[in-house]
Amino acid sequence: MNIKVRPEVSNQEEVFQLLYGALYERALVLAQELPKTHSVQLCVGNHQAEQENSALFEKCGFTPMYRQYEMEKELNRVQETPELHLPELQFIQTALESSEEEQRYLRTESTIWPENPLGLHRLRRLKGSTDFTSFAALDPDSQLVASVMVCQEDDKTGSIEEVFVVPAWRKKGIATHFIRYGLQYLQKKGYAAARLSVLTKNEKALELYQSLGFTISGEEHRYGKELVKVESLSRG
């Protein structure tokens, strides 16, 4: 969620608090409908310069969660992707159309980010994006070991999403390979640029994206407020 009050409004904080109260009550209702397996947080993201807006959320009990860089790359000079020789793996392009593919993706993805798994609802929101596709690698047992998603961000810009490689297959160039495929795909779809987000403390990922020509275009600060704790959920 987020709340933006126009700067010319004289009683900005009063308007903010009225809107926040309504949204908070709605969030409490929605929280009760979520699976009772995780804590529930209400989250907001602001650009680094929006300090006054962030301060209003902090007054409401929000605390810093993490920061991330917004990165961008122009697609006027995208090189062809060289072959990657890993005969043990099967490389595929898929829109994750079947429920079996969705579940296979979610099983693997939840091991990469166990504290914040994507979940089926958010996955299907991504799948509903214009020009959505993914590039994936499967091991000999047909288990997912790496994935990169791409889709539209706006009319002129594509987005690189949910980049991961399972630990056993890292440092083999798979993420680089798939991101290059994603950039080629977006260029062929007519996008002028590609964007992605990366945690500011993820130095390895930041180095990878910079090596592929991405540059930092902004910084976003995320804040969260716990609505429901796992303990209270487990007690019913």
Rank of each mutant, 00 (worst) to 15 (best):
P167M: 14
Q184P: 03
I160R: 04
E153V: 01
H177C: 10
I160Y: 02
V163H: 06
E162W: 00
V165G: 06
D154P: 04
Y185D: 09
Q184H: 11
T157R: 10
S159R: 11
R180L: 14
A175C: 11
K171C: 11
T176W: 02
G158S: 03
R180M: 15
I160T: 09
A168Q: 15
K171E: 13
F178Y: 12
G173V: 02
T176F: 01
V163Q: 02
K189E: 04
K188G: 11
Y191G: 05
G173L: 03
I179A: 12
V163T: 07
E161K: 14
E161W: 04
G182I: 10
Y181F: 14
W169T: 01
S159H: 08
Y185E: 12
K189N: 04
T176A: 14
L186A: 08
Q184G: 14
I174K: 05
A175Q: 02
A175Y: 01
P167E: 15
G182H: 08
A168T: 13
Y185K: 07
Y185C: 05
D154E: 14
T157I: 08
I179E: 09
F178C: 11
E161S: 09
A175N: 06
F164L: 07
K156L: 13
G173T: 08
I174G: 06
H177V: 10
I160C: 08
R170C: 05
K172T: 07
K189G: 01
L186R: 05
H177E: 09
T176I: 07
G182F: 07
I179Q: 10
R170S: 09
A175I: 07
V166S: 11
G190L: 01
G190D: 04
E162D: 14
G173Y: 00
Y181I: 12
Y181L: 15
A168S: 15
H177G: 10
L183R: 07
Y185G: 05
K171W: 01
V163I: 14
I174H: 06
E153P: 00
V166H: 02
R170V: 05
K172S: 08
S159P: 00
L186M: 13
Y191F: 08
R170A: 08
V163M: 07
K156W: 02
E161A: 10
V166F: 03
E162P: 01
Q187K: 15
P167S: 15
V163W: 03
A193Y: 06
T176Y: 06
Y185M: 07
P167I: 13
K189L: 10
H177R: 11
Y185A: 07
A193R: 14
A192M: 02
E161G: 01
K188M: 13
W169K: 04
R170E: 09
E153M: 08
Q184M: 10
T157S: 13
P167F: 11
F178Q: 05
W169H: 12
Q187W: 03
K189Y: 01
V166L: 11
S159N: 10
E153A: 10
W169Q: 03
I179W: 06
V165H: 00
D155H: 07
Y191W: 01
K171Y: 03
L183E: 12
H177T: 10
V166R: 05
V165I: 10
D155W: 02
K188E: 15
V163P: 04
V165K: 02
F178S: 07
A175R: 02
K172Y: 06
G182L: 11
D154M: 12
R180E: 15
S159V: 03
A192Q: 12
